[in-house]
Structures are given as C-alpha cells and as structure tokens.
C-alpha cells in the first residue's frame, strides 16, 4: 500500500502510473497547487516540491505533487512551501498568461512532468 497520495492534472501520469491513491483533477496548474494546500490544511504533509522542474508555471499546464496519505497536525513547513509556490505561480501568470500550445508541445510538457514525478516515486519506493 502506498504511503502517499498523488495529486495531478496530467493525463499521462494518470494513464501510466496505475496508482490506487491518485487524485486526478481537470483544474489548472494553480488549481492543483490549491488542491494540495487544501490537503495540507487537513494535516497531510507535502512530500514533493510543488515547483518541480525548471519549466515555469506559466508555461506548463501540468503538475503532479505527492503528499502523505496520513494526516495529523498541520505541518507548517509544508504550508510554507505550498504558499510560496502559489505566490510564485501567480507572479508568473500575472507576467504573461500561458500560451495556447499545440498538441505536440502539450505532450512534451506531460512527458517532463511524468518523468520528474516517476523519478520522485522511485525515490520513495
């Protein structure tokens, strides 16, 4: 049984990582981060960095984040990281909104996010 929940809006992650504890959402990248923050407020801990990859949050539409399956007291460090990640994401979006990407590029973004989160899951296992 996994010790984590994977929150993602990346269809490639959903398709290839057959996870029992996957939380798939159709929301934007910012929506994924806010979903993570909601879980953190309920006592889940952040396990992977929300600003993973050097692809900027106003470029890639896709994001996958790992949080702990168990929940206890509010973890302030998790809250600190998710809040500054949300702040950073909003800053980038206000600079320039995400372009309308062709499918080929969307596939590339999915692949990068998938690679990064797969490597992270390998670290946990």
């Amino acid at each position: 049984m996994n010790s984590y929940i994977l929150i993602t809006n990346n269809p490639m992650v959903k398709k290839n990582l057959i996870e029992k504890d996957i939380f798939f959402t159709n929301k934007s990248l910012l929506g994924v981060l806010i979903e993570c923050r909601n879980h953190i407020h309920k006592g889940h801990k952040l396990l992977s960095h929300p600003l993973s990859s050097s692809v900027k949050p106003n470029e890639t539409p896709f994001k996958s984040v790992l949080i702990s399956k168990s929940a206890s007291n509010l973890d302030y460090r998790s809250l600190e990281i998710i809040e500054s990640s949300i702040l950073s994401t909003k800053k980038f979006i206000s600079n320039a909104p995400q372009p309308k990407w062709p499918d080929k590029i969307l596939d590339d973004f999915m692949l990068i996010d998938y690679s990064v989160i797969s490597n992270t899951i390998d670290s946990i296992k």
Partner: peptide
C-alpha cells in the same frame, strides 16, 4: 536538487 523533500 531532487524533487522528493526527504532527499532534500
């Protein structure tokens, strides 16, 4: 500079 916070 890994993504998993425990690695950090």
């Amino acid at each position: 500079e890994n993504v998993y916070l425990a690695d950090k």
